[in-house]
Design a protein around this nucleic acid. Structure first.
Lengths: 267, 267
DNA sequence: AAGGGGCGGTGCAGAAAATGCAACGTCGTG
DNA sequence: CACGACGTTGCATTTTCTGCACCGCCCCTT
């Protein structure tokens, strides 16, 4: 797909030479090259001398950016993966903060970013609505999974059996009816894309949550809106929409290109 | 063979220069550098000329690997994350995730998937037990080979000589006694099929690990269970059994899934 | 306002890479 | 066994990078 005129711009800087090779390794369809790329493969893709590619790959190998399979072919190494994971955690809260702020401005209710921790929902970030009546700031606190919209969002990808077990285990006072109700809510959330906890945590509170996926596609966190039920109830759909676009923006800024079919030649 | 030894701290090849900068950006403590790193920060970390770092960062900026915040400071950018999605063995992580989940469900301790990377054990995936006391999530981090059950599992197929060499190279503080003890543990692991690291990484931790082999029989990764020694110790055999069947299932799915390019379009 | 210090960035000559060609050993395959 | 493809290396040339000095900028202090 991308094999065309690379040599025009590619030879500028050292970093972009490195990137060209990494890009080639990354963009190789694993179905076509299930075992990595050979020196010659990369050389053909980039239209360069195989000797050059050989030496560059050797260099990249020493730095740990690429790995060599037993077949002698090259692939992107785990080290790159580790790099991204480490940096990804930092990025989440950093990038989420302004988005929470914007979301709060839109819906005028308190918004939260939370993660799953020890089987409970841990709030890591929150932005207040500056209205006199609003949900409380729960940063640093945990909430049982089954009592919040974030919990529903965080569990969206798990299997039903697992969700039920998790809910039951979370707190000893969970009735079977409650658990099944929660599960039904999760199912609805999957359909809609966002979860709704209407007077579940508190008879006066209504929460709307959506999952945030990291670059691996796993649900890493959840964003939710929470506030007085009487005020939010009429706007559930609208708020859900806002929430979804906020999360989408967050994911985009976390990693703008995770679609495997996407052509990374947008530079 | 590499004829020359690394004589200086300063890096030799262009690729490792790039990697050094990315490493610096990734490993910066977000508490200390909440807004990315400045040119001078990176230059100090790497002990290099700021002019060099400035030019390299500019180059990396053009490739999209790093981004510049409004403050002028640098941070890792989407390009790296886009690369990281394709790094490592995507098939492995994807297929392992549900299996880790199931295993965790069974043993109620944190489970890990790790690979050998640069002579260290890199945790690639982890699933928490949702108990209040459990081992920590180490995804993206590395652990010395000789201090974990995964390390034992990953090295199971190597020859003794090589294992010892690897252990000694891993960390300079490895005593001869420790190394031989590790080797003995690996031998036991071969016999049993799974490895046990009882209070080795940490005086309170116990890990049980098993190797994951691809269809050629080569060890590609390791799955391990880790948690408080007092809780796991009575169930080592049972957990080992569960671990082995989980790994067996994972290996089966690795072989049967013929669609390596299956796309993670779940974003 | 002036000075000091840290910052990011640039010009330049010398130093140190990468480059491309040719050649070599090594695999499989026909 | 010859053939072609592959990965790798030696070498002269070219290109790039390096380190130093220096500049303009901003912020803080005096």
């Amino acid at each position: 797909m991308v094999l065309e005129q690379k040599q025009t711009l590619v030879t500028r800087s050292g970093a972009s030479r490195v990137m060209a090779i990494l890009d080639a390794l990354a963009s190789a369809d694993p179905a076509v090259f299930p075992d990595g790329l050979s020196v010659a493969d990369v050389a053909r893709m980039l239209g360069r001398e195989k000797s050059v590619v050989s030496r560059q790959l050797k260099s990249l190998l020493e730095t740990g950016m690429v790995a060599r399979r037993s077949s002698g072919r090259y692939e992107l190494s785990w080290r790159l993966f580790a790099l991204a994971v480490r940096a990804g955690d930092q990025r989440l809260t950093k990038l989420a903060a302004p988005l929470l702020l914007r979301l709060t401005e839109t819906v005028r209710e308190r918004t939260y970013l939370s993660v799953l921790s020890d089987g409970e929902v841990l709030t890591v970030l929150s932005e207040g609505s500056r209205r006199s009546i609003e949900a409380a700031n729960w940063v640093g606190r945990t909430v049982p999974v089954h009592r919040s919209s974030s919990g529903m969002a965080l569990l969206m990808d798990y299997e039903d059996k697992y969700i039920l077990e998790m809910v039951r285990r979370g707190e000893n006072g969970v009735s079977e009816r409650e658990a099944r109700e929660f599960l039904a809510q999760v199912h609805e959330a999957r359909r809609r894309g966002y979860s709704v906890a209407n007077r579940i945590f508190d008879p006066e509170l209504l929460g709307i949550g959506a999952p945030v996926r990291d670059f691996t596609g796993r649900i890493h966190a959840a964003v939710n809106i929470s506030g007085p039920a009487f005020r939010i109830e009429p706007h559930i759909q609208a708020f859900g929409g806002h929430l979804l676009s906020a999360v989408k923006a967050l994911q985009a800024s976390l990693c703008s290109d995770t679609r495997p079919g996407a052509d990374p030649s947008d530079l």
